[in-house]
Amino acid sequence: MMISLHYEVDGQDFALAGEASSNVKKVLKQLGVKPDIIRRVAIAMYEGEMNMVIHANGGIADVEITPSKIVIIMQDTGPGIEDIELAMKEGYSTAPDAIREMGFGAGMGLPNIKKYTDQLQIISEVGKGTRLEMTIFVK
């Protein structure tokens, strides 16, 4: 069994951001996936979704659900990340003040994604975009 979900994440609408993650959460609940696994998937994907909205003007998300693992692939054609190692550091953020006033820009999103996933691969090219592949195993 494999379920594939596809989402286009709008980069213009801050209020709507998180819809895709919310939908994935609902699907996993319906499938009877364990609550702690659902929470890890939801948080990691939501951080990725917010990053695409805040830093890359939106993008696309694909989620593959199988009995053994959940894979989330998030791709954007935004500005890219120059130094991934630096971006992974807690507290590092390039978010503007307007975003900070909304409660984001703590520089905790990528570290959170790392913390809640079993595997994380980031590929990014400046001027081209960023691709995140997150895997969470269902034990």
């Binding site: 801050f14 209020a15 951001a17 909304m102 984001f104 703590a106 959170n112």
Partner: peptide, 23 residues
């Protein structure tokens, strides 16, 4: 800070915040 909250995993938690946006 929402990402601060997202780093905090506890069951049956209450959130106190001064932010009032949909996120």
């Amino acid at each position: 800070l929402m990402s601060d909250v997202l780093a905090f995993v506890k069951d049956q938690a209450l959130l106190l915040t001064g932010l009032v946006n949909s996120q």
